[in-house]
């Protein structure tokens, strides 16, 4: 018996979120008294694989079938479901990210499993099996009871944390025995921006709204982000008006993020905006309107003109970095 966790890699490397996921799977497996088995697809150097032991993985299955070179949702689901069956998995854990959303539902059907996504805690109980998950974009939590023998979960990012627990790990190859004639996702072109902090990975995020007044005022915001090592985000109207790229739009209809720090500059805090950021650990709001809803969601607030306040923040951040 086992808990299986799909650990995605990016160009052969794991991220902090991968370690969080393994930590979660390990905690779950410990409660169930079973092994934690990670599945890794593609080429990943051995030192990277070995690092998973620090978070509680007993075994890594390396899957290298050529059908998996491009993300084909059906092929990935076949490989992961096959490994889950071969290892008698009780629970299969994914990240609630792009790949998790693409693959986990297909795995659930293959395993005839009930599924909960955006799970925020360890199970509240094991029999019956009940997990807590975000609903209404974090406006409430639901306790979902899963009745199938096997369960598929996807973990909300930054909800569990990275927990070290050293175990010894074995690395094995796993042949997923895929029938290549069945899988036909054709990748025609790939466009990625390099060198920028990917918003959904960022631990710190600096974000601007219409209160910034003009796209020309983003210089100090970007400078503050650069000093702190933060990603940059924006509200929907800012993206719609072309002040900032659409990739920065956060909220219900944009990206959902949960960084350690979210600094909202000149953003009102509409409910649809909060839906994308309210799981952030610490929130700062800067606004000229004392009634702005963001002050109710924020931990720290500054009442005033963002274009006067930003230079002060930049200066203080520079001084802070110079001393640390």
């Amino acid at each position: 018996m086992s808990v299986i966790v799909y650990t995605e890699n990016w160009d052969g490397k794991f991220k902090k979120s991968s370690y969080e996921l393994v930590s979660y799977a390990h905690a779950l497996a410990s409660e169930l008294g079973v092994e934690t088995i990670a599945i890794s697809i593609g080429q990943v150097p051995e030192d990277q694989l070995n690092a998973l032991a620090n978070y509680g993985a007993n075994k890594v299955l390396c899957v290298k079938n050529p059908e998996l070179a491009v993300l084909d949702n059906a092929a990935y689901a076949s490989a992961i479901a096959r490994a889950a069956k071969a290892n008698n998995a009780q629970v299969v854990v994914f990240a609630n990210n792009f790949t998790g959303k693409a693959v986990a539902p297909r795995v659930a059907v293959k395993l005839e499993a009930g599924m909960a996504n955006s799970v925020t805690t360890l199970p509240l109980s094991f029999s019956p099996f009940v997990v807590q998950k975000n609903i209404f974009n974090g406006k409430a939590q639901g306790n979902l009871q899963i009745n199938s023998n096997i369960k598929v979960l996807s973990l909300a990012q930054n909800s569990f944390g990275v927990k070290e627990s050293s175990v010894s790990l074995t690395i094995e190859n796993f042949d997923a025995q895929l029938d290549s004639s069945k899988f036909n996702t054709e990748l025609i072109e790939k466009n990625t921006v390099s060198g920028k902090i990917i918003l959904t990975d960022a631990e710190l995020v600096v974000s601007g709204g219409r209160g910034m007044k003009s796209p020309d005022n983003w210089g100090p915001l970007e400078e503050l982000a650069a000093i702190l090592g933060a990603g940059t985000a924006c509200s929907r109207p800012v993206a719609d008006e072309g002040w900032r790229p659409h990739s920065e739009h956060v909220g219900q209809t944009g990206k959902v993020i949960a960084p350690n720090l979210y600094i909202a500059l000149g953003i009102s805090g509409a409910i649809q905006h909060l839906a994308g950021v309210s799981s952030s650990k610490v929130i700062v709001a800067v606004n000229t309107d004392p009634e702005a809803p963001f002050f109710e969601a924020a931990d720290y607030g500054i009442l005033g003109d963002v274009n006067k306040i930003l230079p002060k923040l930049v200066e203080a951040a520079k001084a802070f970095k110079a001393h640390s």
Binding site: N96, A108, I135
Partner: peptide, 15 residues
């Protein structure tokens, strides 16, 4: 936007 399942599309395709 209610239960945020993110599952129907993938499950449907698999069925």
């Amino acid at each position: 936007s209610d239960y945020n399942g993110s599952a129907v599309g993938g499950m449907l395709a698999e069925f």
